[in-house]
């Protein structure tokens, strides 16, 4: 079957098998940031934005993205760059394999809730597993970014 979508802003028309997962589709189209860490929708490594909402691309058929906009970290570099340096300053990237997934989910969080509390950050990112960092350094990095940025302007709250 053929699908049409926007991948990172670029219109794309492609033939896919009905069973093709969005994860495999975007990786085949050059989005190597999207990782697979499990087969059971538990790890969060494959998080992408589907029409702006974070989804696990291992649990979404490519066909489901027909007519939609799909964004991966490749397409959101500037938005990520705004805060990931703060995580790097903690050394909390560690092996890096889970990074794209939780960075994508952090982007989604900050769009929804520009001034999250620590507990809101923990809850929103709870589905993003990391085996290296113990999570605390990731939180410190995001908190350092929020503190450096100051309170989000009025009207930006979702």
């Amino acid at each position: 079957m053929e699908i049409q979508l926007k991948l990172n802003g670029r219109p794309l028309r492609a033939a896919v098998e009905p069973g093709t997962l969005l994860l495999d589709f975007v990786r085949a189209h050059g989005c190597a940031s999207v990782k697979r860490g499990c087969e059971t929708s538990n790890c969060g490594l494959c998080t992408v934005l589907l029409d702006g909402k974070p989804v696990l691309s291992c649990s979404v058929l490519a066909a489901r993205a027909d007519g939609c906009e799909v964004q991966t970290l490749e397409g959101l570099q500037a938005e990520a760059e705004a805060f990931v340096a703060f995580i790097a300053d903690q050394g909390a990237e560690q092996c890096g394999f889970c990074n794209p997934g939780y960075v994508m989910n952090t982007i989604a969080l900050l769009r929804e809730n520009p001034d999250p509390t620590d507990d809101e950050i923990r809850a929103y990112l709870a589905g993003n597993l990391c085996r290296c960092s113990g999570y605390e350094g990731q939180l410190r990095g995001i908190r350092a970014f929020l503190d450096a940025r100051g309170p989000a302007k009025e009207g930006h709250h979702g």
């Binding site: 190597a32 940031s33 999207v34 991966t72 970290l73 490749e74 570099q77 990520a80 760059e81 990931v84 340096a85 995580i87 790097a88 050394g91 990237e93 092996c95 890096g96 990074n99 794209p100 960075v103």
Partner: peptide, 10 residues
Amino acid sequence: KKDALGLLLG
């Protein structure tokens, strides 16, 4: 870490 930003940016 030398590879930190590359990893964080996927």
